[in-house]
Design a protein around this nucleic acid. Structure first.
Lengths: 205, 205
DNA sequence: GCGCCGAAGTTATCAGTGTCAACAATGTAT
DNA sequence: ATACATTGTTGACACTGATAACTTCGGCGC
């Protein structure tokens, strides 16, 4: 039996292969404790090879988190309705897309908000991370201009929206939204409460 | 120079000493990656001693998380105003106490919501963890009875409150509430939006 | 008071990790 | 063809979680 085909000594695009392998493992290996050596093994190289492309493990984690922000922003852009007739019709698909992204990619989502060293390099002030927040900011700004949203500092309103959606995403990822505790449709209930808090109240509603 | 006084071979209360040492390190060592060996060293015993009191590292982490829930519930009970005149007056001190607990104990707070193996033993359905959620549930239930809160499924409303406060606590812990992004008083703004979403709207407010 | 057994300590070992140094195999530029 | 840089490799180190075997008592029964 012939030996398996072997990759030449120089991989050619190992940096991208490491990143893609890591993303794949984050998505598919449930409850995996991320290790650089395991990623290197899965990519078919030695344990020290990644150190030629990333200064250390944290640098790779930060890069993965950035890609997560990019993908989340794309998911939100795709979910945005074209002609919503109300704030509820506009915010609901975006919120559901956000939570779906988190629950479809729990390890990546946690990573986006947890690498401690990432804060040292100001990761969350990076444009790619801010872009997600800007989707919410833009929507609420336009709502205020249209007179459908309460006249309040829009950044405060965007923070409320972000905190609630971020919070419920994490609760969902952690399996905490059990029905005997939160009822049968916690996500919809939370979004409805958010919208009630943001929108100018209508009579008899 | 005399040798330092040495602890007798049998510690006498090592389980409690391990727990207290771990809690102390979680609070004081910024960005420390929790290790059982380091806790044992700090407690003055060998690296294998904790295994006589905890089956494994996760069991200790779960115990620490439970204590965190106990302390959070006590902090919320202490913050509860005695005669609030509005929902805002009632929910604000409790919310601020919740966020203060999280930002004063960031590593412990993260632990309370992240030990993956803890989910396997149903940690979050434990009475001690549920008690925190019950504080919110009870307050909203009484608000509905008093006619100050919108008539909605109360568990959904409690979930919205919990998600928002949990979310903003984590954003604060992670240092994401930077003013150029969220404005100058994001916490107050988020609580105000939450209250607007929960309370029955008053005319001309 | 003594002996025995179990609890709770210890030391040593194993398999894994992140990271670094030294070396090896090319790829590229001249 | 040669030299140098890039990008691989192997090996080592210090650390981790966990286990096994051994040691030191504490408690209990007689």
């Amino acid at each position: 039996m012939q030996a398996a085909p072997h990759r030449p000594y120089h991989h050619g695009d190992l940096r991208r292969a490491i990143i893609e392998t890591a993303l794949d493992m984050l998505r598919t290996e449930k409850d995996w404790q991320f290790t650089l050596r395991e990623v290197a093994r899965r990519a078919g190289v030695s344990h020290a090879a990644p150190y030629k492309h990333f200064p250390d493990k944290t640098a790779l984690l930060v890069e993965l988190a950035m890609i997560g922000f990019d993908r989340l922003r794309e998911a939100l852009a795709e979910a945005k309705p074209e002609a919503p007739r109300s704030l509820l019709e506009e915010i609901t698909p975006i919120s559901l897309a956000y939570v779906a992204f988190g629950t479809d990619n729990p390890a990546l989502y946690r990573l986006m908000f947890s690498p401690e060293e990432g804060r040292a390099v100001g990761m969350h002030l990076d444009q790619r991370a801010l872009a997600v927040f800007d989707v919410v900011l833009d929507m609420l700004g336009r709502g205020q201009a249209a007179g459908t949203i309460r006249k309040r500092p829009v950044r405060g309103q965007a923070t409320a929206a972000w905190a609630l959606i971020h919070g419920i995403t994490l609760l969902a990822i952690d399996g905490l939204l059990v029905p005997e505790k939160v009822g049968s449709a916690p996500l919809e209930a939370a979004i409805a409460t958010l919208v009630d808090g943001l929108a100018i109240p209508q009579p008899n509603t």
